[in-house]
């Protein structure tokens, strides 16, 4: 038995440490190599006057490309980490993730429909495709939830079945729409595999309120999720308002995942691998898992983003491709390494 003090602090040191490393690497690494002293000079320039001449493009790259990209990716990683953890807890199934109940399929369909209608990049001052994807994801989840309801309760099995059915339907319509509007095919593929790398602070500001709201709710749902681990029947007997708790978790977790999908495209495996890794390392209590997986999600996605931007530089690999390529084998490794723990979600 590990000492309680050590086991309760070290996960925080690990996750925060990993996040700091990921942030530093993310600022330092890019298609254009900016010397470390120049990075420091640019970042500290509001505070300290520097003698050396720093090319102005470096400053633009840092402030208008790398930093906003870093924040957006970190937000999406947090959203996917927390959302995945919440869905796994809700379904009491380590293979559940936000996409199971149609978040990705709904977002994809709405985005492709908006593109085939030749929506411009900017509609009423909003980024049109992310906005459409966001609304599509939430509508799909609402539909899935409504279909899955049996009387007053929402059994997990009907929720997953409704999710699979609605997702398949949405994916089919998406394929059809893409085939029928070949002129927008390129744009659709670009969005799906990794968003548009919009750059600038606009997307960050657009995503921030939704991610913040969803995380604020999800991070306080640790105890109800712990109670749900005993099953709906016992959770109800223990005094939990099971149906309402489930609804709140589904809405908040879908909101988080929908925001990530809207801005960065369909990123596979983060919502699956991150909570799983956190659980294998630090046990099952959702009160601890939720914040840890949230931080870990940010580090994981930042790491994937660094790989995406640097491995075949100057070409950019889509983020979704990197997370799938890294995530799938990693997931299998976790599975093989700890089958005993896997039973123990």
């Amino acid at each position: 038995m590990k000492s309680a003090a050590v086991s309760s602090i070290s996960p925080w040191i690990w996750t925060v440490g990993a996040l700091v490393v990921a942030i530093v690497a993310s600022v330092a690494i890019g298609a254009v190599s900016i010397p470390v002293d120049a990075v420091a000079g640019i970042l500290l320039s509001p505070l300290v006057e520097f003698e050396s001449e720093i090319p102005p493009a470096f400053s633009t790259i840092l402030y208008e490309i790398r930093l906003p990209n870093l924040v957006l990716v970190a937000l999406a990683g947090m959203a996917l980490g927390a959302s995945g953890t919440a869905f796994q807890g809700l379904f009491r199934n380590p293979l559940a993730d936000p996409y199971v109940i149609g978040v990705a399929a709904g977002a994809g369909l709405a985005a492709v429909l908006a593109m085939s209608a030749q929506w411009p990049a900017d509609l009423l001052g909003m980024a049109a495709i992310p906005a459409a994807a966001f609304v599509g994801a939430l509508l799909t989840v609402a539909l899935v939830y409504a279909l899955a309801r049996v009387g007053r309760s929402t059994p997990v099995t009907t929720l997953i079945l409704a999710g699979v059915a609605v997702s398949s339907f949405a994916t089919a319509i998406t394929s059809m729409t893409m085939l029928l509007s070949t002129s927008e095919l390129h744009r659709a593929v670009t969005w799906m595999v990794g968003g548009f790398a919009l750059g600038g602070w606009g997307p960050v500001m657009a995503a921030l309120p939704y991610v913040a709201l969803a995380l604020a709710v999800l991070l306080t749902m640790g105890r109800p999720l712990d109670v749900l681990q005993f099953g709906d029947e016992q959770a109800g007997q223990l005094g939990l308002d099971v149906d309402r708790v489930k609804l709140v978790i589904v809405v908040a977790a879908s909101l988080a995942a929908a925001t990530a999908v809207a801005f960065l495209g369909i990123i596979a495996f983060v919502g699956l691998v991150v909570p799983h890794l956190a659980r294998l390392l630090w046990g099952t209590s959702y009160r601890r898992l939720l914040p840890l997986a949230t931080l870990l999600g940010a580090s994981f996605l930042l790491g994937a983003d660094i790989v995406a931007r640097s491995i075949i530089s100057p070409r950019v690999l889509p983020l979704g491709v990197v997370t799938a390529v890294v995530g799938a084998p990693f997931f299998l490794y976790l599975l093989a390494r700890s089958k005993r723990r896997l039973r123990a979600w």
Binding site: R223, D226, V227, Q229, F230, L238, G239, L240, G283, T284, S285, R341, R343, A344, W345
Partner: peptide, 17 residues
């Protein structure tokens, strides 16, 4: 029962109401 819950945590669930 959730296998990796500590016994104490299981009992604490009784305080949910």
């Amino acid at each position: 029962l959730p296998p990796t819950f500590r016994a104490m945590d299981v009992v604490l669930m009784g305080r949910t109401p």
